[in-house]
């Protein structure tokens, strides 16, 4: 199948491209954190996924050489995403529409698992009372910027 006499030319990516891609990835990591500070409503997750998808594409195309390599590798990678989309898509088609005829099926059976029954109710935010032994005063660890 393959040509036996000459070795195929291996692509060597210029240093500039690697460093450029690396820089772009770092910049977009900063952007995704900054963007998360604003509220775009339901578009939030879409924006976050678009940025992550863009970064992932750069990694796959340049660091993983999909751009230069055998197109078969691209097909394999793309099909893994396609079948993942089928899996998540059809599963969520059920989980999102379960309640259409029967509202009782909207959520999992236990909205609050039994193990919470003996615990003090959460009164929200910083004022929560102490729970079991290990629970330290809450909210000291909340992430900045939210």
């Amino acid at each position: 199948m393959t040509n036996q006499t000459s070795h195929a030319h291996h692509h060597i990516t210029p240093l500039k491209i690697y460093l450029g891609i690396g820089g772009t990835l770092l910049v977009f990591t900063v952007i995704t954190v900054l963007v998360a500070g604003f509220d775009f409503g339901p578009a939030n997750i879409l924006i976050a996924l678009l940025i992550a998808g863009f970064k992932a594409t750069l990694v796959a195309f340049f660091f993983m050489h999909l751009w230069y390599d055998n197109k078969l590798f691209f097909v394999i990678f793309a099909s893994s995403l396609a079948f993942l989309a089928i899996f998540i898509g059809l599963t969520m088609y059920d989980t999102e529409r379960r309640a259409e005829l029967d509202p009782i099926k909207e959520h999992p059976i236990e909205a609050q698992a039994a193990m919470y029954k003996n615990r003090p109710a959460v009164t929200g935010g910083a004022a929560a009372s102490h729970g079991e032994a290990t629970a330290a005063p809450v909210d000291t660890n909340a992430a900045p910027g939210h």
């Binding site: 193990m115 615990r119 003090p120 079991e132 032994a133 629970a135 909210d139």
Partner: peptide, 14 residues
């Protein structure tokens, strides 16, 4: 079931 924290509101934070 090892979740013992009490500072988070909402259903089933574990």
């Amino acid at each position: 079931k090892y979740y013992t924290y009490t500072g988070i509101e909402g259903s089933n934070p574990h």
